[in-house]
C-alpha cells in the first residue's frame, strides 16, 4: 500500500525547544485526516512542514511518493503544489476579495462559483480590513479552493465561523475534494468538525502521534471525559 503523504521520524526544533520528536504519519490517497492536540503541540508546524514552509531538522517527508524533504533534499513550497488555509489567514492587505482569487487562478467561472459557494459575492470588492473575522476566514478558504491541487491543508478553517456557515463550508470542501481527488489534512480544536469530515483523526502528544482513531471513537472518549462524575 502506498501512501500519498508520509512523514517519517520527523524532528523539528525552534531554538532549544523540540516541538516534533520523531513524528511519523501516513496518509492515504483521497483520505481526509484530522490533526488533534493541545495548543502549542505542533499541529501548524506539521502543516508547514508538509507545505515546505519549514524545513525539518531530521527525518523524511514524501508527497505523491517523491521525497520532498530529507537530509539532502528540499523541495521549495512553490514546487510542491499544495493548497492551504493558514491559521492566521495570510491575506494580502492591498487586494480585494476578488483580486485574491484572480491572483491564484485565471478561471473566471471557477472564481465566481467559489465566491458564491462561500457567500462572498457581495463582498468581492472589499479589502481584508473592511471584512469581519468570519468573512476574512472565508476569503482565505476561497483562495485555497480556487487553486486546484491534490493536496489540501486546512489549519483551523472554521474557528471564526458559526454553525450554519461551518456546514456550508464543509460541503464546499467536500466538493473540492471530489473534483480534484484531493488528499486533505485538517487541523481543528473541535471534535465535532472531525465527525462529518474526517476518515481518521491523528492525536498529537509530546511531539509524536500518540494514536490514530475513527472520529466517532474520539467523540465517545470525549463524552466519557466530560460526563464522568466529578470526584469528591
Amino acid at each position: 500500500m502506498s501512501y500519498y503523504i508520509t512523514l517519517h521520524d520527523v524532528r523539528k526544533k525552534f531554538g532549544k525547544i523540540e516541538v516534533l520528536k520523531g513524528l511519523s504519519l501516513n496518509v492515504k490517497k483521497g483520505e481526509i485526516i484530522g490533526l488533534f492536540g493541545p495548543s502549542g503541540s505542533g499541529k501548524s508546524t506539521i502543516l508547514n512542514l508538509i507545505a515546505g514552509l519549514e524545513r525539518p531538522d531530521g527525518g523524511r517527508i514524501t508527497l505523491r511518493n517523491t521525497t520532498v524533504a530529507s537530509d539532502n533534499v528540499f523541495v521549495s513550497p512553490e514546487e510542491r503544489n499544495v493548497s492551504m488555509v493558514f491559521q492566521d489567514l495570510g491575506l494580502w492587505p492591498h487586494m480585494t476579495v476578488e483580486e485574491h482569487l484572480k491572483f491564484v487562478s485565471d478561471d473566471r467561472r471557477l472564481i465566481s462559483v467559489v465566491l458564491k459557494q462561500l457567500g462572498l459575492e457581495k463582498k468581492k470588492d472589499r479589502l481584508p480590513e473592511e471584512l469581519s473575522g468570519g468573512e476574512r476566514q472565508r476569503v482565505s478558504i476561497a483562495r485555497a479552493l480556487t487553486k486546484p491541487s491534490d493536496i489540501l491543508l486546512l489549519d483551523e478553517p472554521f474557528s471564526f465561523l458559526d454553525l450554519k456557515l461551518r456546514e456550508r463550508v464543509k460541503k464546499t470542501i467536500k466538493d473540492y475534494k471530489k473534483k480534484n481527488e484531493s488528499t486533505v489534512v485538517i487541523v481543528s480544536h473541535s471534535v465535532f468538525d472531525f465527525i462529518d469530515l474526517c476518515d481518521r483523526v491523528a492525536i498529537l502528544k509530546d511531539g509524536k502521534i500518540s494514536k490514530i482513531e475513527k472520529p466517532r471513537e474520539l467523540l465517545l472518549e470525549f463524552q466519557k471525559f466530560y460526563y464522568r462524575k466529578p470526584k469528591r
Binding site: 508547514n48 507545505a51 514552509l53 493548497s83 491559521q87 491575506l91 494580502w92 491572483f103
Partner: peptide, 29 residues
C-alpha cells in the same frame, strides 16, 4: 514589517513565480 510571516507564506503557496509575487504583492504593500 507589513510583509508578515503568514502573508509571506501565502505568497509562497499561491505564487505564480517569484517576480510576479514581488511586483504584484510585495511592491504594492
Amino acid at each position: 514589517g507589513k510583509v508578515t510571516k503568514s502573508l509571506e507564506s501565502s505568497i509562497r503557496i499561491f505564487s505564480r513565480g517569484s517576480l510576479i509575487s514581488f511586483f504584484k504583492i510585495v511592491l504594492p504593500i
